[in-house]
Design a protein around this nucleic acid. Structure first.
Lengths: 348, 348
DNA sequence: TTGAAAGCGCTAACAG
DNA sequence: CTGTTAGCGCTTTCAA
């Protein structure tokens, strides 16, 4: 038995399809008699009718679909996210979208980094892009005449809406905290520093803090790789190999902080006694970790909520570029200890 | 400037729309001259044409859309998943779907637990449902004539495809390991035991293991709440309160194992010295945890891959019910220690 | 207050 | 080998 269509409803109610359409969409411009309305709803009920949104979008030119692009955490990895940050963010996006009558079309980036095809194929009403991508693939998005919200990237663009945090400030807060706690040799552990990504800003913040304490950047303290637990774990050995005797580390993601701690533990180091660690994000994990992580807290859920709201606003005709910088704060937990700045000892 | 439609392409190429359609869909039944084909592709390129999948689905009756329903981890929680298990699973689903030309329509369950509306609205080609839901809302899915894959649930149904693991065996392996390591008073820490959920099976496995060692179930060792880090953390105190002097615990999810460990640490207990812990899932976190978790490994990515493959097979006309039970194994890591079964001491 | 009719972008007989 | 035509399910002028 085929799905009931609007025609079936019209027939059952003894009216025309347009009348059914009016009733369904509560068009105030057309006024339908209470009686007719009644009969239509009855038919809808008995036929168990559900409108076909694809057909609707053909005429109405809106799909009530929001495209979401989540990055692969690591270039080589097949799957999108091992970083729970994305799960938390996605949850918030999904929930907010659904509450507003939108559905989510989820996608990882195509191998060629182009999402434009999918978006055009499906005629999404808006796109939320998480993370940073090659400028080229972003510029393709201009072809689409749909609102685009960029989450956590620093591309300069006159039309894309953006939402993020002050990553540089975050880097500053994190590093300053370590400095205030007496640390002077501070490792910077992160994924690679890309032009428009958040890492670069966090790195600038790291340097800002050093400046505040009249310290020069020492490149030997930089440990750059990928944003993954595994890489961070390996950094522990690298720290020993280099012999820089760091007493603290700023890891630019909680999972990296955790990886680092795990790596150190394997070498029989204790946290925070042998090395203090500050990380970034404050995913649920940060609290779960042991010791719980001192980290830069950002409101991940709010990021998702705002992203959706920006799409909605734009869809409602709000044409100006929207920008939002969410607040962050240092969460002091258990992974940092105070030391005497003059002491010469370090874990390595 | 409006998006180019098939008509524009036809005009530009000097052919009819059907010819364009044939070329686009590589219909082997219709043979188009090389020359025409050439001209069509040229027009497609210059006009930057992308077919409208919504319109296509109107006639072709397939949307190349797979609906995915991910549960809210906790009833009260607004957002879907704090358990990274879902992130890992979703990643695999998304990747596999995309490789096969399908896109994902993501949704949490509606407040009324009904997903049927969305699925019908959008005309998805298949649905993947993760976790267990009220039988009632599942039975509504029968109305849809699309393949449904149920992941991790034990509802008996003649048409829904299922994929899962032998949770009972998992419970057995976990608990047996603890018994073999000399433990006798073993806490069972889990979310509530629901009829068709995985927890119940894991619980049965727990009892199976006790039987193997001729031990009776002692209900005082049961700690039931929600599948969350927080609840598990609180169990630590509850264990002390009850004073059962357990020497080990079987937690039915890694995040619970981690929560429990964290809770115990807060009470200055050491893992595994004061309490041995075995958990379940082997999410990335399990390795990241410290001590790393001895846990029941399941291939989360494969679960997602298989789920999508089942949909594809069904869409290709494979009508029989498909069932898949993926292998599991005990991963021995660092959260369990061997004790003398006769010793009377315990953490509490 | 309602209906007829055209059309959204695409596919698929069928005819030539 | 290619075009005509009808129609998928819905919305929306326009006319009655």
């Amino acid at each position: 038995m085929r799905r009931a269509s609007i025609k079936d409803v019209a027939k059952a109610a003894g009216v025309s399809t347009s009348t059914v359409s009016y009733v369904l969409n509560q068009k105030s411009s057309e006024s339908i008699s209470a009686q007719t309305t009644q009969r239509v709803w009855e038919a809808v009920r008995t036929l168990n009718y559900v409108p076909n949104l694809n057909a609707r979008s053909l005429t109405s030119r809106r799909t009530n679909l929001i495209g979401v692009v989540i990055p692969q955490t690591e270039p080589g990895k097949e799957f999108m996210f091992s970083n729970p940050f994305y799960g938390e963010l996605l949850s918030a996006i999904e929930y907010t979208a659904r509450r507003n009558g939108y559905h989510l079309l989820l996608s990882g980036p195509e191998p060629d980094q182009s999402y434009v095809g999918i978006a055009r194929n499906r005629g999404v009403d808006g796109i939320i892009i998480v993370g940073s991508y090659p400028t080229k693939s972003l510029s393709e998005l201009h072809q689409l005449s749909v609102p685009v919200v960029l989450v956590d990237t620093y591309v300069k663009d006159p039309v894309f809406h953006t939402i993020g945090i002050d990553d540089r400030l975050g880097g500053l807060l994190a590093t300053r905290h370590l400095l205030e706690m007496g640390h002077r040799r501070i490792a910077f552990v992160s994924g690679s520093i890309s032009e428009q990504g958040v890492t670069q800003k966090r790195f600038l913040g790291y340097m800002d803090a050093l400046s505040e304490f009249s310290l020069a950047l020492d490149e030997r303290h930089l440990y750059l790789g990928s944003v993954s637990f595994e890489f961070a774990q390996s950094v522990a050995q690298e720290m020993e190999r280099r012999g820089n005797r760091e007493t603290a580390a700023f890891a630019t993601a909680d999972i990296m902080g955790m990886g680092l701690i795990k790596g150190l533990r394997h070498m029989n180091r204790t946290i925070p006694d042998d090395l203090s660690v500050v990380s970034f994000d404050d995913v649920d994990l940060a609290r779960m970790s042991d010791p719980s992580l001192t980290t830069i807290h950002q409101d991940i859920a709010q990021k998702g909520i705002s992203a959706v709201e920006m799409i909605l606003a734009a869809a409602d005709g709000h044409k100006e570029k929207q920008e939002s910088i969410l607040p962050i704060q240092l969460m002091v937990r258990d992974s940092v200890r105070r030391i005497d700045p003059n002491q010469e000892s370090g874990a390595f």
